[in-house]
Design a protein around this nucleic acid. Structure first.
Length: 601
DNA sequence: TGCAAGACTTGTCACTAAACTC
DNA sequence: GAGTTTAGTGACAAGTCTTGCA
């Protein structure tokens, strides 16, 4: 609750960090770490120190290597003609392995009697059997959709016998798969190593492409295997069969003068095209929603990095004109035209509450979720007075991924009056903003600032919140663990603002308990060794961090909303190693920012 | 001009490799 | 060194926004 109220008190907007190009001196940092430990050295300490020293030295070396021989695409000129590349060569996607029929001894039972299924019907049955322990298989829609699609794979004889899903017994198949997974865990070191090596071979062969003279990592080079569709929330299509993708379904995109990828023997591609106005390497149409899926590059690639950088630059440009935009929409609350009032109130919510735009969705095709423009009357309640506060709006709706957004927020009188007006003579299922949609809103935003769309507000407000919170929470005398707690608290404020929730981890209670036990155990030894004192502090920070993080997902905001230069600058200013904030993958993604940022932003 | 298709970003979750503990 | 915990990663669903066409 504290964080919830905190984030809505975030009314101070600053966004004044500036990128500067400075080399990251990771090797120096590694040297400095040597002096981080206390003076008293008993035998245990010496051992511990040596271990730590070796580890840190190795980390330092690794970090140094990471910094070296990396291509600094951000120092090069960008294409200005709308093309994304000049040369693109890759080996095509990796297909899902062919179906392996079940051993004879593993049986499917119908109405208590064993029944041998044809290969296509058996394969689909295994998809269901694998999910037997999951809640999905108890849901009516899931079962109905699965059964309908499963029947399509059956022979006419099978169809005539299998007429009721309730009479199907998949338990033996389920046990077989569990045993297989158990056997995988019990494999010897050598066997595991062999699999690892095979995966690495596959990665080096298919996981990279050549784009404009550089070897770039591909994000997802494996085609999604067949299975049962797991929609989120109350998805009307959950349980439907996601069919197997064959080379004949796949469009390859590469440059004309490259060595074209070869389809698997005896097959051919749907098409090979050479479109350098797009970034994808391969695509296919999936059968559930009929949408296109793509194979694209990893976030560390130039093509993704440039776009990411550009996104934060747009957010930064918004900083310069956000006051003007705010003045304008406040003015528009008074407009004579309903459409302008609606637009202004919606924009106020997007800005203040970091709501998503809310595109229209096809009814019955997906779960019933909404964003700002698609809010319905039933999603808000108005309270002229509530707990000492005036003009309170209560929001309660399912947003992206069917995550509930619930919030009570006092608004300005004029907004409140407008909302009352919008609700007049409407039914609960009617649109709150019936004169507005995302394209109208974005068209308007585009007129206010070049490149401005609704989602820029989310990026902008997330970054500005991080910056302001870091400033407020960081004390220069704090230890590194304390500073890291401050960082995570600032990150958390952003996650709360953006409503990034997660289900509490299944092992949360247990691990929390363990952590508390450890804290207690360490407390007893406190006076004995200084090193243990440090450990205690670290654990305490970790415990607080985890407790506060119980239902908050930090990753998304860190990866997608927070201008990395703020974090890098903070690390530099307070001497916090960048590795404590960003892991290797994230450091690769944000290499451009790490290279640019200085102590002051 | 409106709408559907296409392209790309954002988001959560499950699996697994690595780190930690005993 | 085995068992346990944690962090990192990949999978893939679900959004946003742009583009192209009737």
């Amino acid at each position: 609750m504290f964080w919830l109220s905190l984030c809505f008190c975030l009314t101070v907007y600053r966004f004044d960090y500036k990128p500067k190009k400075v080399k990251v001196e990771l090797d120096k940092k590694a040297k400095k770490r040597k002096y981080e430990y206390g003076d008293d050295e008993d035998e245990e300490d010496v051992k511990h120190k040596k271990k730590s020293k070796d580890k840190k030295a190795a980390e330092g070396k690794k970090a140094k290597k990471e910094g070296e021989d990396k291509w600094k695409w951000w120092e090069e000129e960008r294409y200005t003609d709308g093309s994304k590349w000049r040369f693109l060569e890759h080996k095509g996607p990796v297909f899902a392995p062919a179906y392996e029929p079940l051993p004879e001894k593993v049986k499917f039972y119908y109405n208590g009697k064993p029944m041998k299924l044809s290969a296509p019907a058996e394969e689909v049955a295994t998809f269901f059997a694998k999910m037997l322990d999951h809640e999905y298989t108890t849901k009516d829609i899931f079962r109905k959709n699965f059964y309908k699609d499963w029947r399509k794979e059956m022979t006419s004889e099978e169809k005539s016998i299998i007429t009721d899903l309730k009479k199907c017994d998949f338990s033996e198949m389920n046990e077989y798969f569990k045993a297989q997974s158990e056997a995988r865990k019990q494999m010897s070191k050598e066997e595991k190593q062999k699999i690892k090596e095979e995966n690495e071979r596959l990665l080096s062969e298919y996981g990279f492409c050549i784009m404009d003279n550089h070897r770039e990592r591909i994000g997802n080079f494996r085609i999604e295997p067949p299975g049962l569709f797991r929609g989120r929330g109350d998805h009307p299509k959950m349980g439907m069969l996601k069919r197997r993708i064959r080379p004949e379904d796949v469009i390859i995109n590469c440059s004309k003068d490259s060595k074209h990828p070869k389809p698997p023997p005896g097959t051919k591609w749907k098409e090979v095209r050479h479109d350098n106005k797009v970034t994808w390497l391969a695509s296919w149409t999936e059968n559930i929603q009929g949408s296109i899926k793509y194979i694209m590059l990893n976030p560390s690639s130039r093509i993704k990095g440039e776009k990411d950088w550009q996104k934060y630059e747009t957010a930064r440009r918004l900083k310069k004109c956000v006051d003007r935009i705010r003045t304008q929409y406040r003015e528009d609350w008074k407009s004579k035209e309903m459409r302008i009032r609606q637009r202004a109130v919606a924009l106020y919510f997007i800005d203040k509450l970091a709501l998503r735009a809310g595109n229209e969705k096809e009814e019955g095709e997906t779960a019933d979720t909404v964003g700002c423009c698609s809010l319905r009357v039933e999603h808000i309640k108005l309270f002229p007075k509530m707990d000492e506060q005036e003009y309170v709006v209560e929001f309660d709706f399912l947003g992206k991924d069917s995550i509930r957004y619930y919030n009570k927020i006092p608004v300005e009188k004029r907004v409140f009056k407008n909302l009352q007006l919008f609700l007049e003579n409407k039914q609960p299922e009617d649109d709150l903003f019936d004169r507005l949609n995302t394209s109208i809103l974005n068209k308007h935003l585009q007129e206010l600032m070049d490149g401005l769309t609704a989602k820029v507000f989310r990026t902008y407000n997330a970054s500005i919140t991080l910056q302001q919170q870091l400033k407020e929470l960081t004390c220069c005398d704090d230890s590194i663990p304390a500073k890291l707690l401050s960082y995570n608290r600032a990150n958390r404020a952003v996650a709360i603002l953006c409503n990034h929730q997660r289900a509490p981890p299944k092992t949360f209670e247990k691990s929390m308990q363990n952590l508390q036990t450890k804290v207690k155990a360490v407390e007893v030894k406190r006076k004995a060794v200084q090193r243990i004192e440090e450990q205690l502090m670290k654990l305490q920070m970790q415990a607080t961090d985890r407790e506060e993080n119980k239902q908050i997902a930090l990753g998304t905001s860190k990866l997608n909303y927070l201008d990395p230069r703020i974090s890098v600058a903070w690390c530099k200013k307070w001497g916090v190693p960048i590795e404590k904030i960003y892991n290797k993958t994230q450091r690769e993604k944000f290499a451009w920012a790490i290279d640019m940022a200085e102590k002051e932003f």
